[in-house]
Amino acid sequence: METMTRLFAGHRSLWLAFYGCVLAAWAALFAMQVREVPASLQVDGLAYLISLCRTTAADAGFRSALVMWALMALAMMAPTAFPAFRTFAQLSRTAGAGAAPLAALLGGYMLVWLGFSVVAALLQTRLAELGLITDLGQSVSAPLNGGLLLLAGAYQFSTLKEACLNACQSPMTFFFSHWQPGARGGAMLGLRLGAICLGCCWALMLLAFIAGTMNLAFMGLAMVLMTLEKLPAIGTRITAPLGVFLILTGAVALLLPLTNSIN
């Protein structure tokens, strides 16, 4: 009980709802990959989610792609920010506030990632129209693969990435610097925190077009990497090596087809 109290910092019902939504998003992403549904599970909601992946990425359209990217954002990005959410919960609880500021913070954070989902869905539908990705959102273009890998690798060494990552790794400092009381303040802090998190992770998220936007293994690995990057003791040790790895992999992705064509 004491461990649960330290972990959730009050507002247990809100935390349970939060993680319930995250688990539901993972379950929905898994269900969307199922091709044959048992008759006992053929309910409208599940059938709709599965139908999103039964057409090609081009035929699915923007709305279906948006649903998928929004689920990915909730499943992957919300858990990476849990240390910041917990820090805010502890601060607001000390200030005697109820659950409303925390709920507003969570809402503001996810609103930013919903905006990213809109952009990613537009990008996916355009790539599909150009024939650059498969039915499952996986790139078939060596230049696109290499370009995304080089972009993500180079961004690991950018000053913007460093600034955003420093803020994510020091949530207490971030909240003290930008504190605003009440639910409205929580929403504004959530938007700011979401923007900072987006600044850390957008390039890594776009690598889904290489692994496949419906690749659960990639989603899980990316979530773990982005979570570790936000931990001060670990993040400083993996950001640069990850950048080097992505740059080298991108160079190979670009040069290998040229080598094969020469041979």
Rank of each mutant, 00 (worst) to 15 (best):
T173G: 10
Q33S: 15
I262L: 15
L193V: 09
M4Q: 09
M172H: 14
G182T: 13
E36A: 15
T236V: 11
F209V: 03
A84G: 11
L122F: 03
A99C: 05
A17Q: 07
T249N: 14
A28E: 05
L165E: 03
V43E: 07
G212D: 13
L102C: 02
A240M: 04
G243D: 04
E129A: 14
W179M: 09
N145Y: 07
L66F: 15
T55M: 10
T80L: 09
V224Q: 03
L198A: 14
A60G: 11
L29T: 05
L225F: 14
C21E: 03
C21W: 02
M77E: 08
V119R: 10
V22D: 02
F82Y: 13
A57W: 08
H178D: 10
M76T: 06
T3H: 10
R192E: 15
E162T: 10
M188H: 14
L225P: 01
L206W: 04
L136Y: 12
L256S: 05
G220H: 06
A203M: 09
T134H: 02
L105W: 02
A183C: 10
V224W: 00
M77K: 04
F175A: 11
V140A: 14
S117R: 04
G108T: 01
M110E: 01
A75Y: 02
A95W: 13
A120T: 04
F218Y: 11
P83C: 11
L122D: 12
I238C: 02
T159L: 12
T173K: 09
L225M: 15
P171V: 06
Q33C: 08
R237N: 03
P38W: 00
I133C: 04
A84K: 00
M1V: 01
L254N: 05
R192V: 01
A121L: 02
F209W: 11
A60P: 02
V252H: 06
G107M: 04
Q169D: 07
L231S: 05
S177N: 11
L254Y: 03
C197F: 01
P257C: 07
R126V: 11
A89W: 01
V224K: 00
R93P: 00
G107A: 09
F209R: 03
A24Y: 00
W15C: 01
L228G: 14
I50D: 05
V119A: 14
I234M: 07
V67W: 03
I238H: 04
S177V: 00
N260R: 13
T227R: 06
G96A: 11
R192M: 10
L123Q: 10
E129L: 13
L221Y: 07
R126T: 13
L160F: 15
D135Q: 11
M214G: 07
L258P: 07
L46T: 10
A128F: 00
R35V: 06
V140Q: 15
Q90F: 05
S117E: 10
A58C: 05
V67G: 10
A103M: 00
A142V: 02
S13M: 14
H11F: 00
T87H: 06
G137D: 13
L111T: 14
T173L: 12
C201E: 01
S40R: 15
V224E: 06
R35F: 04
R63Y: 13
A17R: 08
M76Y: 01
S170H: 14
W26S: 01
T249G: 12
A60N: 11
A104R: 00
L106S: 05
L228S: 14
P101K: 08
T56F: 15
G131A: 08
L216H: 04
L160V: 15
Y109D: 02
L165C: 07
A163K: 06
A195G: 09
R93D: 08
